[in-house]
Design a protein around this nucleic acid. Structure first.
Lengths: 180, 180
DNA sequence: ATATATTAGTTGGTAGGCAAACCAACTTGA
DNA sequence: TCAAGTTGGTTTGCCTACCAACTAATATAT
């Protein structure tokens, strides 16, 4: 939502903290040039936009990645989902419970490991996933439309590089005990 | 993202879905190529890495951007901070209260608008900011080290484009609201 | 086989996020 | 001046996230 011109179109001297200035645009300074902060802003914006799309349905945005991954990997374990979504396994517990309660997924005991639960979609789950995938596709299209194909590709590659680097080399401090 | 080497060199046949296979790597499929999902993963990874740096001090990572922005814009309003950080104003209420309680910021009434509060750093706040800025600088350096200077610049530009596009054109649905 | 370590998943506690409802103060218009 | 609308902040309620600790089952070592 835009907020410019809401107060005044005259754009009074932004440096002056005068009464008409209301909320000055805030100078981002150094932060505004960092990868990390821009990453945060972009992610937030993307999530918000996606939420706006899914909000129309009664579907939570956080469900989508989960359903999609389950759909693509029937029988996955919760731990695997946790890793794939970069969320703590304990975060998934109530979430999956909710999905199960709504009949979107099935959690059957793994016959080969009685601790584990093999997760898969139900028919209803597949249907919901189709709806969410629709939103996701629109969202993706919207993002893609912002860039030239090669730019898009480049951006994804850069993001992957970043993720990869940070997740694999996470512990650089102490005497590294790499392989035992 | 690959997750090898994170746990151990156990390396049981990863393809076999046998009991020893534990969690299969999960196929990300379509998701893994989208901007949105990679954005999410990258942001999460970045945040985690930054948290690891700040965790050493008794300082919450969420404080940093706030303190930095306040430092750069003494006298800002909470609403302005809310916009600059892309966080809801109600999110900042307890956070700023906390910072004030710890003596890091000051919230003095705006003489020109008795609703508003002009926020600025205290000396202690400046000191804490310096510590956090140190972490931020290290984090930034780490991220920057992953890319060539022009790549970095490019990435930031792409992210800005994305954020900008999503935040300004948020409401495209209904018949465009004719400005009154 | 039995003790020990690992792993899958859940629980409880806490922190941070949003949205909606609310109050107080400012703005505007008649 | 006074009513209606807007805006800055706070409160409340809910959701999502993490972590640490726990249980149950599996794996490993002796």
């Amino acid at each position: 939502m835009r907020k410019r011109t809401t107060t005044r179109a005259t754009a009074p001297p932004a440096d002056a903290a005068g009464p008409g200035a209301a909320q000055a645009p805030v100078q981002l300074g150094w932060l505004g040039e960092t990868i990390a902060y821009n990453l945060r802003l972009a992610q937030t914006a993307s999530f918000q936009a996606f939420s706006a799309l899914t909000g129309d349905l009664g579907l939570r945005p956080g469900w989508y990645a989960l359903l999609q991954l389950i759909g693509d990997n029937p029988g996955v374990s919760q731990t695997a989902l946790s890793l794939a979504t970069s969320r703590d396994k304990s975060t998934l517990t109530p979430l999956l419970g909710d999905l199960e309660r709504r009949g979107l997924i099935r959690r059957e005991p793994d016959p080969l490991d009685r601790r584990g639960r093999r997760i898969s979609l139900t028919e209803a789950g597949r249907a919901k996933l189709a709806l969410l995938a629709e939103c996701a596709a629109r969202h993706d299209a919207r993002l893609n439309a912002l860039f030239a194909p090669e730019q898009r590709q480049h951006l994804v590659a850069l993001l992957k590089t970043l993720t990869e680097a940070l997740t694999t080399e996470t512990p650089p401090p102490e005497s590294g005990p790499p392989e035992d």
